[in-house]
Design a protein around this nucleic acid. Sequence first.
DNA 1: CGCGGCACTGCTCATATGAGCATCAGAGCA
DNA 2: TGCTCTGATGCTCATATGAGCAGTGCCGCG
Lengths: 311, 311
Amino acid sequence: MDDELLSVRVAELYYDENKTQDEIGALLGISRWKAGRLLSQARENGIVRIEIVHPRARRLTAERELRERFGLADAVVVPNPENSDGVLGRVAQAAADYLTSLRPVPRMLGVSWGRTLTEVAERLPDGWATGVSVVQINGGVSLNRRPGTAATLASTIAQRGRGHVTLLPSPAILERLSTKQAIEADRTVAEVLARAASANAYLFSAGVGDEQSALVESGYLQAEEVQELARKGAIGDVVGRYIDANGNIVDPALDERTVGLGLERLREAATAIFVVAGETKHDIARAVVMSGLCTVLITDESTARALLEEI
Amino acid sequence: MDDELLSVRVAELYYDENKTQDEIGALLGISRWKAGRLLSQARENGIVRIEIVHPRARRLTAERELRERFGLADAVVVPNPENSDGVLGRVAQAAADYLTSLRPVPRMLGVSWGRTLTEVAERLPDGWATGVSVVQINGGVSLNRRPGTAATLASTIAQRGRGHVTLLPSPAILERLSTKQAIEADRTVAEVLARAASANAYLFSAGVGDEQSALVESGYLQAEEVQELARKGAIGDVVGRYIDANGNIVDPALDERTVGLGLERLREAATAIFVVAGETKHDIARAVVMSGLCTVLITDESTARALLEEI
DNA sequence: CGCGGCACTGCTCATATGAGCATCAGAGCA
DNA sequence: TGCTCTGATGCTCATATGAGCAGTGCCGCG
């Protein structure tokens, strides 16, 4: 009987029959230590596969690699479910879990909006914090076709955290620079922006630069404008601002007309939690992570692998 | 954080990060014992799945149940491969392994023939035994369309076991009873049959009672005859003899014309190794096992499950 | 209000396990 | 043949683990 087969036998007796290595040794006519060594071999060679099957399980090895590779403060990676839908839910759940156990508890939390963050908000348990101030970090009131999502999301997070919300009463992108400057000068808006800049933690996601983008759906941009941005190298948007693969603003003029927290503030934040899920967002995720826009990454395994597979 | 989620975290740290339960306790702010308990829970609830992936792995739990349920001396169950072909190979490999490690080494081994046993013979390692006498237990020389398989199989087993083979020089089934009696009376045949009856171990498989049966393919029976047998309740054949679900001979007249070891000899044998694989053979496997035709069963997991699922 | 039952906790102690080390057998070579 | 090197073996000992037990707090019930 060759060594590999013996490994298999030992592994079977140990894991399926839960015998002790001593018993296994006696049974197979080998010493206790040989049994132990064969067992380690079996684990190393992948003959024994140990898997943690649970929607809220994580991939700690990938997390460690991400932290090291990109200098992140933290990373959370959840396994992809069998059928690819449900990823968003899992990642959102992980983000909710992360927020809940985040220490120190953030006093002021800046949030952006979008489908991903809505899912996160819905999964936050009641009482996830006590007395958190939530502030919107980019505009989006009223023009949204599904009205109120942006506001609802932020206020849900605040309510469940036993705190209050400050909404940013402004469109995300304005048509004219002068209007943008005017609205920014307005005291109510200026105050919100100041609060946003002073938050000690941020929670945001990112959009892909295509026609299904939330900014297009909400009417802030035309499909053609997005196509033009893509031609200029845009791969997606973060808090309403389009960036290229290096994390740079693609169209400074457009960016000037965009109301909300600047990317430089995000880059210097102590805690910037980036939540991203799904095959379509691999590229924008890479841009965000590589250009230092976040300190914490929460994502799915397939995205994590894509990030780590880089040479 | 609820208990289930905590279990998941503990399992991750224990199995993915191989930390000790002590470390995990410190990390999650629980006692070492609580960590241990959560780990057992995780295993019990199936959150942790430990699998042994190897073509030669076995299913020891099923084996134990089979032994207990059917009073077998031994049972070997191999996992079904992903794609259903390859089962026969795995089971044959298991049978070869079993024979190789069988103690006491059989001095005289009675073998039947068929595709399954051919596969077994091919997988026996050179030198699997030293000086084994192999004897055919049912007829089949010459009429076989793939000539020599039956003989080759037996002599391969003998050669690799450093022994010699005794072939049964007779058709499996004769057209007339008188011919059968005459050939049985012939000294060369009678001697072989006597040797067959005196073997201390048997190795055999079974055929399903349909038109693709080896007995039909070899020309011993017509398709119509098999259909007629099926109408009478036959579910398959063992060493050339057709039996019903209870293990009884279906057609005594036909059985009288069949040359080879009787089933009653098989039933009283100290070691009768039955090798069977594949979905189509579940019924015949059940008949053989339930009617005590074998003392050792070697099969695949799906067949084992079918046998055990009985009420 | 007091009591028994029950689940859960953290302990003690026996046992199982892995790391590190001395020993040994066999291959390769002078 | 005798030598050295290498890889495997079985040991000692420190550590990790699980079984069983006593203490604790909570619940429902009289």
